[in-house]
Amino acid sequence: MAVTIKDVAKAANVAPSTVSRVIANSPRISEKTKEKVREVMKQLGYHPNFIARSLASQATRAIGLVLPSSTDIVSQNPFFPIVLGGLSDGAHSKQYALHMTTGKTEEEIFEGVVSMVQGGRVDGVILLSSRVEDPLVSYLLEQDFPFVVIGKPFKNVEQITHVDNDNFKAAKDATNYLLSLGHEQIGFIGGNLNLVVTVERLLGYEKALRDAGLPLINEYVIHDEFLREGGREAVQALLALKKLPTAMLVADDLMALGVLNALDELGISVPEDVSIVSFNNVLVAEMARPPLTSVDINIFDLGYEAAKSLIQKIENPKEPTKRIIIPYELVKRSSCAKPTKKTLTL
């Protein structure tokens, strides 16, 4: 015979309503009482029926996740498994489920989100990237539907709760590190310019060069996908130049791995000929040869705080809009050195 809330209440010597509030993690119940009731639930093998609870409360206890339309980026780039791990932990701690959108195009993803919202399948939505032009943000604002963005919104910043790094400052600091080593010809390899993170890092890179009194060389700035192949293609674009940069700021570790591979095939040594700083500090950076100096943006924390913030908005509609900045750290490894005096040409 199945264990009921009344059985748990009797064993814990509390009211059934108290057990219900413990299951809902109500702040009205003390931590001591919560611990006692949860221990009894564990001893009796009681498992809450969240489907029934959802029907009663008109809540799904589910969060919709909006991933990029490129399946290659999601499946290949280590950023996404790590951020999803943080999202999962944040949601699980409050007993929420995660629903991911699927779609090969931006239009399909938009339709999927509209379906989730209109169909009442989720209580809130998390956007895993921030775009310069993003109809999803406009739609969710119009619907007054709870959502959180991982990244800095391009518009309506004060109206949107978001979790982000200070990507402008991080890129500026990373560029300054290369400048401190003596590099003056520094390239930038970034992602899609419709991504706000790309724009912010590019602006930080440019500000560091301007502050150092150095000219901006447009040919040294290249944009491609956050993939290994994107890094390889960026190097191919640099081959058209008569003079290569002595250092590169690459906006993603997986791209940087592609850069390393392409340079190695050309007989160009890192860091002897070219220094590289990348972003994310995933396992790829540590395992690369040579190991990459990389900006650790604490990806797991980005996901965890996004889930936590959205649940707060869901459970308290009056929760104020917040901007949560996750700290970063430049992790120095073996991919950077002082520039040699020789000019590297191809």
Rank of each mutant, 00 (worst) to 15 (best):
V282I: 02
K242Y: 07
T340S: 12
E315D: 13
A240Q: 14
Y304G: 06
A251L: 12
V295P: 06
R323T: 14
R333T: 01
V282D: 05
L310S: 05
Y328I: 00
V259T: 04
K243W: 05
E265S: 13
I311V: 15
V284T: 15
N261K: 15
P291A: 10
S335M: 09
F300T: 10
K322V: 15
L310H: 01
D253N: 15
T293D: 00
D273V: 11
T293N: 01
I324C: 13
P290Y: 02
L310Y: 02
N261G: 10
I299P: 13
V270C: 11
I326Q: 10
D301S: 02
A262R: 14
A307N: 11
V274Q: 02
G267E: 09
C336G: 00
N316S: 11
R289S: 15
S334D: 08
I325L: 03
S334G: 13
R333S: 00
P291W: 03
K332G: 01
S309C: 03
I326R: 09
A288M: 04
N281L: 06
L302H: 04
L244N: 06
V250D: 00
S294G: 13
D264N: 13
V274Y: 02
V282E: 01
P339G: 08
A247W: 15
A256P: 15
A247E: 15
G303C: 04
